[in-house]
Write a protein that binds this DNA or RNA. Sequence first.
DNA 1: CTGTTAGCGCTTTCAT
DNA 2: ATGAAAGCGCTAACAG
Lengths: 340, 340
Amino acid sequence: MDRTLNMRDVARRANVSVATVSRALRCPEKVSADTAQRIQAAAAELGYVYNASASDILTGRSTVIGLLVPTASNALFGETLHGVQDVTADAGYSVIQCATHYEAAKEATLIDSLLQRRVHAMILTGATDQQMPHVEKLAGDGRTRVVMVWEKPADCPSISYVGIDNRQAARRMTEHLIGLGHRRIGLIVGPYTRISRARSRLEGYRDALEAAGIGFDGELVLERRPDLLEGYEAMERLMSRDQPPTAVFAASDVFAIGALKAAKAMGYSVPRDVSLAGFDDMDMVAYQDPPLTTIRVDAYRIGKLAAQIALEPIGSPSRNYCLDSDLIVRGSTGPCARRG
Amino acid sequence: MDRTLNMRDVARRANVSVATVSRALRCPEKVSADTAQRIQAAAAELGYVYNASASDILTGRSTVIGLLVPTASNALFGETLHGVQDVTADAGYSVIQCATHYEAAKEATLIDSLLQRRVHAMILTGATDQQMPHVEKLAGDGRTRVVMVWEKPADCPSISYVGIDNRQAARRMTEHLIGLGHRRIGLIVGPYTRISRARSRLEGYRDALEAAGIGFDGELVLERRPDLLEGYEAMERLMSRDQPPTAVFAASDVFAIGALKAAKAMGYSVPRDVSLAGFDDMDMVAYQDPPLTTIRVDAYRIGKLAAQIALEPIGSPSRNYCLDSDLIVRGSTGPCARRG
DNA sequence: CTGTTAGCGCTTTCAT
DNA sequence: ATGAAAGCGCTAACAG
């Protein structure tokens, strides 16, 4: 077979015109029951498969959406993809997924490739600040719908948002630690200079300290790329200070798992010697020893909502959903033993 | 903006024909430097974005490939996606990713949707046996290229394969445990009745037992859906037997992490009371306590190779790569203390 | 080097 | 209810 089967082939076989084939396949009620059947039979016999792209191009509206994630090896974003896919598949849409690896250049290239595919919408998980003006313009021009997930874009009327209040959640976690008597609290946080989600978590941490009258100590805050090893090394560094923290808030579970190992390797018992908390509630963290205190985020639901918004017609108003997140207290945080 | 910008708009603006615009954008060397510049300027001013789908449809060759995974929340498949993406992005291809959740019906629907997009190739991670005849036919017809990853399809000349020898690797791990003096060895394995990769691992386990003259005990083998909780419960069940195993081979790291927690919860120390081994070497397993003995598979490299094969023109011969996998001995396996 | 022409596979009026 | 014809945005001959 050199040329791919098309409607004309089916039409010939069923002795009708292509227009009728199109109708029979898309809206069978617009065609006599008899011909509909004949056409469907012909299509099946030939093994004809409908060409979705050809349809897209003609109708001008695309049935593909793009999903950008920082990395595909974080199970969390996998859950979001599942939510997105479950919604889009029912509507006959496909999802192009790409990982940016937190690199602005890659991000720009990938966004461009999505535009070249004329995606109906893009769902962005953590676009860098650098990219926001460009993205906002695309949404404003009505070229594509844009939904940010996990983080709230700073005041972009044309962009939708589905996520949690990162600042509030980080504040709650920090308050939990303060409530346990900790006053020297370390923070391992993502690239807050470029990613607003990380910045919000840092702010929430500071909010809680301030409210409790604890001075901010920049020495206790480490900005890292979310990665197990980076979490490990950051913890080592924090615990090697003259006055090590009595609690560490790892503002991503990936950091926390790395940090837990570092603490143990240095001979610290968690939570007796040092409390440790994460963020996201990846399913693995409940399986750590001790299981980690963290913030639960419903990643799947974020994906579903984002997809619903994404599928709305271009030009529809933007929507914002701020979901609840829960503080999940497990065994890794406990009362402060040392004097702060 | 109601209608999306096209080449005609650019042509008008630059006072040339659409053909010239096409050339200037795709192969600027076929056009005078002067006009090329003028056209590029016009495109930039208008904010014109090339329409990749329109091009695909006309040339007949698509620049999209499909990637099917059982689940997107396993970090392993994320690594494979990265490998695939790094190769395809350079070639200007996009990747449509879908998760089957190990359900044959979903799988069939998703494969169909990929065909409707006329993907150049599909990379399958664990198609169920049920789907294989269909997929093989697609590959044979030259509709699309098909690359299986992680598992070797049973004798399908038209399908390519990139993976490891699952049977051999499972045998090696089992031999490792036997070498430590274990004779009652439990196995927690994926759905081997439907997934050949799981089947191969079961076979490797049996090979090793047989070679060592150890009788096969069906009571020690549990088939489960890869999932932390299932691993946990399977381990509980194994260790509740009258004669519990002295070692357990969890033929997926996800099982192993679940099983580790179960063992600890039941008061067993690993590896003193029971040895535990995984499979895949997800990055998390080195961070467990104790770190898990496992089989290392280079998931990223699998993705890269698969993508290279996928990108070859339709009709190119199929290729098979069987990569090495390594036995990584960490702290979770040790000598057998009890009498077998 | 550039423009003209025909056409990829499909949908959608508009006739019949 | 069905067919003919025009056209979506682009490319690939073929002329000039």
